[in-house]
Simulated scan of single mutants.
Amino acid sequence: MKPIRSLTQTLCVVLAAFSSSLVLAQTTTNYPNKPVKMVVGYAPGGAVDVVARTLGQSLAAQLGQSFIVENKPGAGTNIAVKSVITAEPDGYTLMMAANALAANMALYQPMPFDAEKELTAVSLVGRVPVVIAANPNVPYTTVAQLIAAAKAKPGQIAFASPGNGSTPHMAIEFFAKAAGIDLQHIPYKGGSPAITDAIGGQLPLVAVNALEVLPHAKSGKLKVLAVLSPTRSAIYPDVPTIAESGFPGFEASVWYGVVAPAATPKPVVQKLHAEIQKALQTKEVKERMNAVGGEVIPGSSEMFANLIRSERQRYEKLVREANIKPD
């Protein structure tokens, strides 16, 4: 009886494995056969939301299914991240992530999640540079003049940011360390109120992404001192880069990429990656990214995973040395 029972058990295991493989193959072949949700950890209208909707429209056209953006702001994007981590890993819940995905692992204690273990990197999408902008009435118009003013008044020149631990905040902390200056950080609840107070003269400087400053730079309400990207921005062609301002090799950008729950089947991840790469080559996506001051960044899933890892390590060092706390 034992050999028969053993044979039966073996057949059950083989059949179960075959069935699982068949289901996975059908899932991959038919994917997507229903709408896909793209979670965004910010309110509608911001740069991450715009990028998610732009990519979603292109993917919908390519794959014949809707890509629906779901905005879940709060807790520095941690609410959105956790909702994706706990979602069914079937490829129908994705997230358009940004730098906060890496930064929050260093910023919040205890660590709210482990993106490297609980999520899978699907594809990097693009980046938009951080800019340093100033009230037009301040006496400095270049980064060199700002540094000289800051050295003359250590800790007295203030800059606004969208919040403690935000990408622009971290970017200016990196810049200040490189320049050997001490600036006073004033955190706000988002880029809009930070910009409003810089325009109103409550403080001289603001650090935000390039898109948010654009209308105010065009109207003359703010002047952009530098873009923190390796090359000049398409929407600020006359503004020098931070490298041109004396800091070669320095850059700070808001990057965007798609992630999925960790157990998402590899063939689904590979298909998504291939379709995103295809979308990034379209005229519509490139133009939309240029319109928000950014650029598309094609590349492998491994490249994006490595970026998340290196960014987490970079932020860990800065958070520790500068004693940065979340809002």
Rank of each mutant, 00 (worst) to 15 (best):
G41Q: 01
K177D: 10
D90H: 03
L222S: 07
A291E: 05
A121K: 00
V224R: 08
E212H: 04
A17D: 01
A17I: 14
I297F: 10
V296A: 10
I242H: 14
T142E: 10
A148T: 14
A106T: 11
P168H: 04
A217H: 12
K153T: 14
P129I: 11
L94A: 07
A87V: 05
M289S: 05
S19H: 13
V206E: 00
G191Y: 04
H216G: 01
Y236I: 06
I276E: 04
S245C: 02
H185G: 05
L11C: 09
R309A: 11
G165L: 04
R232P: 08
E173T: 14
M170H: 09
K2W: 13
E287S: 12
Y256D: 03
N306C: 01
V269H: 01
R312Q: 13
L214Y: 12
D49Q: 03
E70C: 07
E321Q: 08
T10E: 15
P73F: 02
A87E: 06
T282A: 03
V292G: 04
V23P: 00
L214G: 04
L101N: 00
V36M: 02
Y92G: 02
M1D: 14
D90P: 00
S58M: 11
P261K: 07
S310Q: 10
Y31D: 04
K189Y: 15
N33Y: 13
